[in-house]
Amino acid sequence: MGIRVEVERDRCEGYGFCEQSAPEVFRLDDEGELEILQAELPDDQCDRAEAAVRLCPVAALRLKR
């Protein structure tokens, strides 16, 4: 069973740490807006997504199991 990634868009400031940690899941577009490329993650990607959530300096990301 995997997890779901969610972003609180009004908190996100586009630092990009999530993209650096898990580029297969997160991407900043040309305007600095976060795109979630893969909202439902398989178990083998959970560790990287959890690291990305921890790295977010404004706590804009969360995971739901």
Rank of each mutant, 00 (worst) to 15 (best):
Y15C: 06
E24K: 04
P57Q: 11
D44I: 08
R62G: 04
E50L: 10
G32D: 05
F17D: 02
E19C: 00
D30L: 03
A51K: 11
D43T: 09
L61N: 13
Q20L: 14
E31M: 09
A52N: 14
A49E: 08
G32L: 04
D44A: 09
C12M: 04
D30G: 07
D44W: 12
A60Q: 08
L55I: 09
A51Q: 12
L61D: 13
A22L: 04
C46W: 04
A22R: 08
E40P: 00
E33N: 08
F26I: 05
L55T: 10
R27H: 07
P23A: 05
E13R: 09
E6I: 14
L55V: 12
E33V: 06
Y15V: 09
L61M: 09
E13Y: 02
V5W: 07
G2R: 06
C46F: 07
L63R: 00
L28Y: 08
E8M: 04
P42A: 14
C46M: 10
A59F: 09
V58N: 05
D10G: 03
L37M: 12
D10C: 02
L37S: 13
F26P: 00
E24D: 11
L28C: 04
Q38A: 15
G16W: 09
V7E: 07
F17L: 09
V5L: 07
L61I: 11
G16S: 07
D44G: 06
P42W: 08
R62V: 02
E6L: 15
C56W: 13
Q45L: 15
L28V: 00
E19Q: 14
G2F: 03
I3W: 09
R54I: 05
R9G: 02
D29Y: 01
A52L: 12
G2P: 10
E13M: 06
V53I: 15
C46R: 14
A22Q: 09
Q20C: 07
L63D: 01
L37I: 14
E40N: 12
E19W: 01
G16D: 02
R62T: 01
P57A: 11
D43C: 01
Y15W: 12
Y15G: 03
L34M: 07
R48E: 15
G32H: 03
G14C: 03
G2T: 03
A22G: 09
A59P: 03
L28M: 06
D47P: 00
R62C: 07
L37R: 13
A59D: 15
G16A: 06
K64G: 00
E33C: 03
P42N: 11
D44E: 15
V58G: 04
R11V: 02
R54T: 10
L63P: 01
C18V: 02
A39S: 14
E50P: 06
L28G: 05
E35S: 08
C56E: 14
C12K: 06
P23Q: 06
R54E: 15
A59Q: 13
L41M: 15
C46E: 13
D30V: 04
P23C: 05
Y15D: 07
F26G: 00
I3G: 03
C46P: 00
P42V: 06
L63K: 01
I3P: 00
V5R: 06
I36E: 00
C46T: 13
E50Q: 11
L61E: 12
R65P: 08
K64E: 14
D29V: 02
